[in-house]
Amino acid sequence: MSARRRIAGFSLLEVSVVLAVLGLLAVGFTAYWASAERASVARAQQQLMVRAERALVGFIYETGRLPCPAPDHDGREACGDPAQKGLLPWRTLGLPTRAAGELRYGVYRNPDQDLDLARAADRFNPLLTDAEGTPSEPPLGNANMLDLCFALDRAAAGDTDPALLHTSTGGTDTNVAYAIAAPGLSDDDGDGSRFDGRQASGEPVFDAPSRGASAVNDDRVATASFDGLAGYFDCVEALAAIGHTHFNAANSARMMAITSAEYLELLRLQLRQAEASTVSASAGVAAAAGGLASGTADTALAIAQTIGSYGTLSPIIAAGVASVVTNTSATVTAAAGLGAAIAGVVEAERRVERAEKLVPDAVDLA
């Protein structure tokens, strides 16, 4: 009897040990499964947020503004609602997955200063100039990316306003252009919403992305600062260049008109100089020809005198011949100079003719 009790007791102990081991394994497996599931959800939500931000960039390029928040999971923006915080308008952005409707989305909207980033408006007026060179900044009557850039620049220069979309660390508030948040795997803070922390609030505030995960908050947050978004679209360079392009081009055109007129006068002076060179070269040819004629006459006279003197004056012939040779060379040189001068006149006339056509065009452009 006692032996059977010992065997039965030993069997009960074994069962207890086995159950304890199984319990430990079950706890370990459950913890591992929860950790793996949390990591899987985090990766999927991270990829979804990246796709959402890319869609936002494409939307901005297309419309020149950020989308308004969606009031529900249907995913369509509601710009008639002035709310700054809602759900991601995934249908409006063209995202193909309904899961994107689970993301919280906020956008900076400040209508009092015409800085509603979800509204396309004509805000940026570049510097223009009229025909008299008077500068002005009239509205252009259209809305494009430059107007969004201008709004981002003004918003970045403004003071922090906690009534507008911002992130908070509990001690520091920072206004941002937009914010996107994913709810994580579970309701860690136990408030009945998968969103934890400031994301669960209806106020235009999100936790700062620098806040790490904790036991009561596993949300993921991504934001874009005004300067960061402006830098992505090269807003500073675009505003600086386009803001003064018309004014600079107008001034350049006026300077070109003045320079073209002065250049025409210079070419006309060169033409007159070339014409004077032609006259001078013609005089040189005439002088050389006269010298040649005189040398020829002297040679003929020398020959006659030599015949009359029975050859005693023959050296005079050599001097006459030398004079003829010298004046012949001078005549050839003068003729070449005259040809060059004439060619210079032709080229100068061609340049003047071209400049005379350029000056009216430059004046019209100015």
Rank of each mutant, 00 (worst) to 15 (best):
L24T: 00
A26H: 05
V27K: 11
Y32S: 15
E37L: 09
R38D: 15
R38N: 12
R38C: 07
A44T: 12
A52H: 00
G58R: 06
G58M: 08
P71W: 08
G75Q: 01
E77Q: 14
C79N: 01
A83L: 07
Q84V: 03
K85Q: 07
L88Y: 04
E102D: 15
L103A: 07
V107A: 06
V107L: 03
Q113G: 10
D116L: 01
L117E: 03
A118L: 02
N125M: 11
L127S: 07
T134P: 10
P138I: 11
G141P: 03
D147W: 01
L148W: 03
F150H: 06
D161L: 09
D161V: 05
A163W: 00
T167M: 05
S168R: 05
N175V: 04
A177T: 00
A179T: 04
A181H: 11
P183M: 04
D189R: 11
D189A: 10
D189I: 09
S193T: 05
A200T: 10
A200F: 04
G202T: 13
E203Q: 14
R211V: 02
N217G: 03
D219N: 06
L229P: 01
A238S: 10
G243R: 04
G243F: 09
H244L: 13
F247I: 07
N248M: 13
S252D: 15
Y263G: 09
L269V: 11
R272M: 06
A281C: 00
A283S: 07
A283M: 07
A286D: 10
A288P: 04
G295C: 01
T296L: 14
T296A: 14
A302G: 05
Q305G: 07
T306L: 08
I307S: 15
T312P: 08
S314M: 04
A322W: 04
A322F: 03
A322I: 10
S323I: 00
V325H: 11
N327D: 15
V332Q: 14
T333R: 10
L338R: 06
L338P: 03
I342G: 08
A343H: 08
V346L: 02
V346N: 07
R354C: 05
D361A: 14
D364L: 13
